[in-house]
Amino acid sequence: MNLRNAAPPFVRAEPTSASMLRTVLFALCALLVIPTVRYGIRPLTMAGVSVLTCLVCEILANLLRTGGFSVTDPSFAVTGLVLALLMPLNAPLWLPCASGAFAVLVAKAPFGSFGRNPFNPAAAGAAFAALCWPGLMFTYFDPSEPFRLPAFADCTFRTGVSAAATLKNGLKPDILPLDMLWGEAAGPLGTGAALVVGACALLLLFSRAAHWQAPVCFLAVCALLAALFPRIACSPLTSVKYELLSGSLLFGGVFLVSDPVPAPYTASGKGIYGAFAGAALMAFRHFGVCEQGAWFAVLLANAASPLIDRAVFRVRGWEEKPHG
């Protein structure tokens, strides 16, 4: 017997950080299935180039920082996949690459990489793309007539109007609710299929890969504000339905708001953080220029999360008081 020394504990209680990231990756890959079946392999190439860019940027950043090539965690793949899923499928392939590079090189690496980034890198990358190329970010092809998109080349297409844009113009979207559930409407690549996103949310919750406080508070506040202040003339419940199913609200709630790294530490802080992001998102939808802005709301809440932590500390009396 060749015995070794090791540090306890020898039994574990929770998933490790890497296995949590792998669960998120699995959930994100599940979102690629329906678009791939419907439009050919372009969704896969888009996700592939996006993840590859993030990997290259991560290695570059590691070279600059530590002089080593090794990539220790799969968080770059999560960033890449989230970015690809937030883009329209007809966007040129350099768009996810550019935003992925921004996400890793500007929003993540300078702060010390995974675990220390104050902002969600994917949200930062998407915000960057939406600010620089709003035309490309918010132009969607019309999925009503089935056709396949080329794998790599830029494509010509007939534009469709997304539900979020229709709502922004104060009109009722002309989309069947069933199509919204399966994502058969103009919109970003991976955010439309509400049923799949919901299944992913359940997977993340039950495998304990994500906490529930922030996403639940986020969705609850969004639904409440949608019911109280509908943007279109309809019943509160219809407003809630369209607001939740349009744009990247649901996807943002499940994959961006649930990221624990830029969120507050405390459970109640996470709830406030989610609620704040929800309120910010609904404000952007009402008063903002862009048709959707989940990433802006998440970035704003990220910036507020240290303040939320301090507020929770003060309320609980954990600050400015010597403890035994």
Binding site: A6, P9, R12, T16, S17, G115, Y265, T266, A267
Partner: peptide
């Protein structure tokens, strides 16, 4: 098997 020795930064889960 020895328990995994890899360390990651704190991910602020608060557990």
């Amino acid at each position: 098997d020895a328990p995994p020795e890899r360390r990651y930064p704190c991910i602020r889960c608060g557990r």
